[in-house]
């Protein structure tokens, strides 16, 4: 990557990132599976869950879905956690995710558009 030489360049870099590569914002039009991979999540098996999700996405050939590893969302008791971010929709948080739950997230939530009935955490956190 080249150095960013001015504030204007930083602003442009940000706009480009939001459109093209960032997996965070709805502008990108992508579906994101965010797996909490901080120490507690990893200790609870998050890496395995991420592998299973990746495997399932490839196997079932689901398009436009990306997995990212995030830090800790703060709900240690419910690790491993997976957040499903779909463009234009409210995030759905799954807790206590097992390998089976991970497969269902792909086959039911992503492929059929039906969020699971179990494992959903109702999290409301204000980020001002």
């Amino acid at each position: 990557m080249d150095k960013i030489g001015s504030w204007d360049e930083l602003k442009r870099f940000r706009e480009d990132t939001r459109k093209e590569t960032s997996l965070l914002t709805p502008d990108s039009g992508k579906t994101i599976l965010a797996v909490g991979e901080a120490t507690c999540g990893i200790a609870a098996g998050a890496k395995k869950i991420a592998e299973v999700l990746q495997d399932e996405i490839e196997k079932r050939d689901v398009k436009n879905v990306y997995i990212i590893a995030t830090g800790c969302f703060g709900y240690c008791y419910a690790e491993p956690m997976v957040e499903v971010r779909e463009p234009g929709k409210k995030s759905v948080y799954y807790g206590y995710v097992t390998e089976d739950t991970a497969r269902e997230i792909v086959s039911e939530h992503l492929m059929q558009g039906k969020p699971l009935t179990q494992n959903i955490l109702n999290l409301e956190v204000r980020i001002p």
Binding site: T39, C40, I42, A43, A44, C76, Y77, E79
Partner: peptide, 19 residues
């Protein structure tokens, strides 16, 4: 404290964490 308090009590063998 290894910072995995959600899994307490925690034992580590090498790098592996048991919760």
């Amino acid at each position: 404290c290894v910072g995995a308090c959600g899994l307490a009590p925690v034992v580590m063998v090498g790098e592996k964490v048991y919760g």
